[in-house]
């Protein structure tokens, strides 16, 4: 009996590699390093500035990084945030970025908003609908988490309908087949 085990193993290895790579892409060239407001050498603690104007990376895994920071950097040249640290803490922070990657042993988010919400209606790639006033609602996004959270959702599940217009979003639409994605692993 022949076996395909080597091929299967190689395929699994390749899939794993692609999976990991896709979740943690390389840090973009030119992305500046986070400039700490203060750095405590004894505790290896970086306190980030109260405002940020650009994306950044922090890749020192034995450190603690604290944010009480505001910044909308979605339209900046560098809008990504990459953070790899032992502990990352956001408190009373409001950060809007285009992509955010955090790899930490401990992550605390307290009274904060971490967002990668779209910033403009006129992004390229979207086409106008044919009739004046018409436009199409969007697909819901993709949420996944390792534990069941009741309020995790990837779509609006309540359509809004008036007598003359039907509104929708990523979720249900009274005339469409729109749906979001929720994956709980």
């Amino acid at each position: 009996m022949t076996t395909n085990l080597p091929q299967i193993s190689l395929f699994i290895l390749l899939c794993h590699f692609l999976f990991v790579q896709s979740y943690w892409p390389p840090i973009p060239t030119g992305l500046p390093e986070l400039q700490c407001e203060t750095y405590d050498e004894k505790d290896h603690t970086c306190t980030a500035p109260t405002t940020i104007h650009s994306g950044f990376y922090w890749n020192t895994t034995e450190t603690i990084v604290k944010f009480s920071t505001y910044g909308d950097i979605r339209d900046g040249t560098y809008c990504q945030i990459f953070i790899a640290a032992k502990t990352v803490a956001f408190k009373y922070s409001n950060i809007m970025s285009c992509d955010i990657y955090i790899n930490a042993t401990n992550l605390l988010i307290d009274h904060s908003s971490i967002s990668t919400t779209g910033s403009t209606l006129y992004g390229k790639g979207w086409t106008n609908s044919t009739d004046f006033g018409n436009s199409y609602a969007a697909f819901g996004g993709f949420c996944s988490n390792s534990q069941v959270l009741d309020f995790t959702y990837g779509n609006y599940d309540t359509p809004y309908t008036s007598e003359v217009e039907t509104y929708g979003s990523g979720g249900l639409n009274s005339r469409g087949y729109l749906f979001g994605f929720i994956v709980v692993t």
Binding site: G118, L121, S129, D131, G133, N134, S135, Y136, A137, A138, F139, G140, G141, F142, C143, N145, L149, F151, T152, Y153, G154, N155, Y156, E165, T166, Y167, G168, S169, G170, G171, N173, R175, G176, Y177, L178, G180, F181
Partner: peptide, 20 residues
Amino acid sequence: SSFEARGGMSCSQDSNFFSL
């Protein structure tokens, strides 16, 4: 607290969507 990945709202009178 919440996790949200909602689609952007719009004004929709038709359903011309594809499936993902």
